[in-house]
Amino acid sequence: MTTLLEVSGVSVSFDGFRAINNLSFQIGEAELRAVIGPNGAGKTTFMDIVTGKTRPDEGRVTYGEKSVSLLSLSESRIAQMGIGRKFQRPTVFEDQSVADNLMMALKKDRNPFAVLMFRPVAADRDRVAELADEIGLSAALHRKAGELSHGQKQWLEIGMLLAQEPRLLLVDEPAAGMTLAEREHTTDLLKEAAKTRAVVVVEHDMEFVRRLDCKVTVLHEGAVLAEGSLDHVTRNEQVIEVYLGR
């Protein structure tokens, strides 16, 4: 399995506080990975660095076959290269319809003038309908995103991510605030997605991580504490110490 994303020796500090401390991380091309860790472990900052929102003080972040460095690229450029991100809070464009949201996310030329001249053809509309079906929002296609329930918004956001056809998906706490049924649906979506691309899921909820049934990376104080199967890491002394306290 070839490596899609490699983060090595990355550190970043805010006002003297080291949020990420010499972090190294790798993920292959079609892999599902869960990242867990207590609050303040640097999970969100890690995602910020990969997606270009935060510039690290030192270290390297390379991506793809050609090992392109992501550090000098803008957020939109990184997204165009195939890294999609889902935020903790569902952020969909509530003033626009589900279809508009999905149409915007479809993998197309992002240049302003291309967008200006863009008119959807039948294939695009079919793809949108297909995605809506996948995330269970076919019936809500013409409703405004703001009218959806919290869980539906989460799915819409996942749908938008899928529409982008990313090679790497970064998902921040997808199950937060969901009902049990919704969680199951979400798990299926993520597992399905991971068959064709790399998916990194940041999550607190151990039950959810167990259901994902994948390799787990434990972050603590901005560095990797342990890595392996869920059972493996939960037996790790240090991990227990960090989670349960001394």
Partner: peptide, 28 residues
């Protein structure tokens, strides 16, 4: 009315999110 309108309204509502969708917000 088209996708351009959709994108600029999205920028109005949450430009960070639009950026992560891959749109060059500054260009728009």
């Amino acid at each position: 009315s088209g996708k351009f309108g959709s994108v600029i309204r999205a920028i109005r509502d949450d430009e960070t999110r639009v950026r992560f969708l891959g749109y060059p917000v500054e260009g728009f």
